[in-house]
């Protein structure tokens, strides 16, 4: 089996959950699993990955890599991939991964599968499963060539300590990102402290039925109790009730949570496109004919402005008991 390299993302000194997901998955594929972190001052990042089956962690460090840069990251990772002779390179289908991986693939002159939901090995080669046509079709991607790249949709794989107590070897490398052309000069933080929709485990979304921006308060209260992130349908976004960053669907975000609670959302095909891979879907709608009920695991036919506060109360009660 070949070496697998995972490009791990980190934020505020912590590894992102997607890195642990990928490590767990990669370990199950067989072969040596190695991880690369790119940035500056990386020794401060909490990077205990040995328990997830990772053998080596490479810290690719340079002051000019403090902030993400497509070309800088592509250059130092290309060098590492060539040095390590990695046969498979994996990352998250996150804003960073979606930007970086195709650049990396083109530089290495190899193939890439984007936004995959499953990975397996067949005859020593990677087979990546991914949705296309907004999830209306599933297909397998097979590769020609010696290096195979894939990004995977967050929350696709379970996180499990397969080798508890093991330590990964940490190798610090001072790297040269070359001259950088498109340079990030600032980062404007969003208001939300919550995980981004694409990474959230629980999502509560509101549709046109919300009626105005203030009414999202009832969803925020439930989200607070559940540690959930709030989303919206396009109708809610286009009506100005929620910013576009909250939109779930074909022209919004593709999400993959454990639990998706849709409140006052009819279930148009373009909304489904963004959330159909959710593990459990709950629909709350006062119209029993709403199409989403035919795709939901659980449905409540009633006024969301009554149901959601009742849910908030009930969750508060049971979660305080456990």
């Amino acid at each position: 089996m070949t070496n697998i390299l995972i490009v791990a993302e980190h934020q505020g000194g912590l590894l992102k959950k997607t890195a642990l997901e990928l490590a767990t998955k990669a370990a199950s594929l067989g072969g040596e699993v190695e991880v690369a972190l790119v940035g500056n001052n990386l020794t401060k990042v909490d990077k205990e990955l040995g328990a997830y089956g990772v053998k080596k962690v490479f810290l690719l460090s340079n002051p000019n890599l403090e902030r993400y840069n497509t070309e800088g990251f592509a250059k130092v990772l290309t060098e590492l991939i060539q040095e390590r002779k990695s046969g498979i390179v994996l990352g998250a289908a996150s804003p960073l991964g979606l930007d970086l991986f195709p650049r990396l693939a083109a530089r290495l002159k190899v193939g890439l599968a984007t936004d995959c939901t499953e990975l397996r090995i067949d005859g020593g080669q990677l087979v990546a499963t991914r949705p296309l046509y907004a999830g209306k079709v599933i297909a397998d991607v097979i590769f020609s060539g010696t290096i195979q790249l894939a990004t995977t949709r967050p929350n696709s794989f379970a996180i499990k300590e397969t080798t508890p107590g093991s330590k990964a070897e940490v190798i610090v490398k001072q790297v040269d990102p070359g001259s950088l052309r498109a340079v990030m000069k600032d980062q404007v933080k969003g208001k939300s402290e919550k995980p981004d929709l694409t990474e959230a485990e629980i999502i509560i979304s509101g549709g046109r039925a919300m009626g105005n921006a203030e009414n999202f308060k009832v969803l925020n209260e439930l989200a607070e109790v559940l540690g959930a992130t709030v989303g919206a349908s396009r109708a809610a976004v286009d009506s100005g009730y929620a910013p576009h960053d909250m939109q779930v669907g074909q022209t919004g975000k593709t999400v993959n949570p454990k639990l998706y609670i849709a409140c006052g959302i009819s279930g148009a095909i373009q909304h489904l496109a963004g959330m159909r891979t959710s593990k459990v879907i709950v629909a709350i709608n006062k119209d029993p004919e709403a199409p989403l009920f035919s795709k939901a695991d659980y449905g409540i036919v009633d006024d969301l402005f009554k149901v959601v506060p009742a849910l908030t109360q009930e969750f508060k009660k049971v979660l305080s008991e456990t």
């Binding site: 498109a182 969003g190 981004d196 960053d245």
Partner: peptide, 9 residues
Amino acid sequence: GGGTQEVYD
């Protein structure tokens, strides 16, 4: 993610 924007030159 999360409503954050990166500003590039």
